[in-house]
Design a protein around this nucleic acid. Structure first.
Length: 154
DNA sequence: GCCAACGTTGGC
DNA sequence: GCCAACGTTGGC
């Protein structure tokens, strides 16, 4: 299967590219949105590359690259009563939430702020620049992915 | 199954 | 901190 590309948002005050760099790998848990979950469950493959996006950051933007290192598995936080992501409607027999594991690839030496992506006409179709687009996991076209990499190098 | 109310996201 | 956009919930 051809490699696919994604953009995944994280608030750096919660989990940033530096956390991932230190951890090497992380479970992308706590996703409680069906569309985002379905991307992880149905569409992601091993080796898919991910733009690591810092949301609610100053400024918001793409901070680096990760890749999918494990396919979707049951999200453990849904069974943790102490977690804010606990879901009483989910059962072990039929878990509701799944998540993939991401592996650190690189942190951009040049952070790519959202404002630069918005100014780049070639990227005007990227979902992240569309108004009101809140989905925390988004598919990205290969040429858009490559363009963001280029911006991170310039 | 409609839709109003409410909660959350996330840029500004 | 504001608020627009969108998802979810729950009454009917």
């Amino acid at each position: 299967m051809a490699k696919k590309y994604w953009l995944m948002k994280s608030e750096p005050s919660v989990y940033s590219i530096d956390n991932l760099k230190k951890d090497k790998k992380t479970l992308w848990d706590s996703i409680r949105n069906y569309q985002a979950r379905n991307f992880m469950m149905k569409d992601m493959s091993l080796g898919d590359e991910v733009l690591f996006y810092h949301s609610n950051a100053e400024p918001p933007g793409v901070a680096g690259v990760a890749k999918v290192s494990k396919l979707a598995q049951v999200d453990p936080t849904q069974f943790d009563k102490k977690s804010k992501y606990f879901d009483a409607k989910s059962t072990k027999e039929k878990p509701r939430w799944y998540c993939v594991e991401l592996q650190y690839v690189k942190k951009f030496s040049n952070y790519v702020p959202l404002s630069d992506i918005k100014e780049n006409k070639q990227l005007k179709n990227m979902l992240v620049v569309q108004r009101g687009q809140r989905l925390s996991i988004q598919p990205v076209k290969e040429k858009d992915f490559q363009q963001v990499l280029k911006m991170a190098q310039s």
